[in-house]
């Protein structure tokens, strides 16, 4: 047993390929047998992966999902930002400039609209839960923009660490919801063309949520959504701690 474990840990990236391969295989089996293929295999694979991450997280108390188990540490490399970004860029191969240009305005609009909308809704939930100081309200609002904007804003405007932790949690909830709900609602909201994919990326903004959501709907749409989503966190970091925090201060 020790020898098996040693091999698996030493070659953790290869172990990760096997782990993900088996997960995807299981997902497609479930998709075929129980949903007659109606629920896409990649969507089920992502949900399975989230479930694994949850159960491992409960038993290890870690923050990196299954990657906290030694033999699965390679999943952290395979699913880390380096290879994720590399693969996202690769999806742009074959994407069309003309599609980007024709829906560019809608994409840019959705970007600013999305950041402000997420912030306002998050701030309103914070107020509904009894927060009264502008710093906490803005930090929680920032967390619903993305879980990066939350702590960036919180530390910039001097929020307490428990409020920053809450803002990260709100951002994580958003990201995981986008991953799981997108394939379910895609048809209803008309998410089937480059333009709506760009709007989707601009409104949701969470890189991991958008990446996983579109992967399960139609991989061809990934570059368009990723294109706007890549600017989202930056726009959030720019306008949330400055402009939007200032606006909240006017009311509280």
């Amino acid at each position: 047993m020790d020898i098996i474990q040693e091999v698996l840990v030493k070659n953790n990236l290869i172990t990760a390929f096997v782990f993900v391969g088996l997960t995807v295989y299981m997902a497609y089996l479930i998709s075929d047998k129980f949903t007659q293929g109606r629920f896409h295999g990649s969507a089920i694979a992502i949900i399975l992966a989230l479930l694994f991450a949850y159960f491992v997280g409960v038993s290890t108390n870690g923050e990196k999902g299954v990657a906290d188990i030694a033999i699965l540490s390679g999943v952290g490399i395979l699913g880390g930002s380096m290879l994720r970004d590399f693969a996202i860029v690769a999806t742009a191969y074959g994407a069309k400039f003309s599609d980007l240009r024709s829906s560019g305005a809608a994409g840019v609009f959705s970007l600013f609209f999305g950041v402000i909308l997420s912030f306002l809704l998050g701030a309103m939930v914070a107020i509904a839960f009894g927060y009264k100081d502008p710093v906490s309200i803005s930090t929680i609002g920032a967390g619903t923009v993305t879980f990066v904007v939350g702590p960036v804003t919180g530390s910039a405007i001097g929020a307490t660490s428990d409020v920053i932790a809450l803002s990260i949690a709100a951002g994580l909830v958003k990201s995981i919801l986008v991953m799981t709900i997108t394939p379910i609602v895609a048809k209803k909201i008309g998410l089937d063309n480059p333009k709506s994919a760009m709007v989707f990326g601009g409104l949701m903004g969470t890189n991991s949520g958008v990446a996983a959501g579109l992967a399960a709907v139609d991989p061809k749409l990934v570059p368009y959504g990723a294109m706007t989503a890549t600017f989202y966190t930056a726009v959030g970091c720019l306008i949330v701690p400055s402009l939007l925090f200032f606006l909240v201060g006017l009311f509280f």
């Binding site: 108390n61 990196k64 999943v75 990201s175």
Partner: peptide, 27 residues
């Protein structure tokens, strides 16, 4: 790309998201 996204999902802090309490979930 899709297998990478599956790996990315498997390393998310799902417990952290659910532990944030009702307010984080609602938001």
């Amino acid at each position: 790309y899709i297998p990478i996204v599956v790996a990315m999902a498997a390393k998310q802090n799902v417990v952290g998201a659910l532990d944030g309490g009702l307010m984080a979930l609602m938001a």
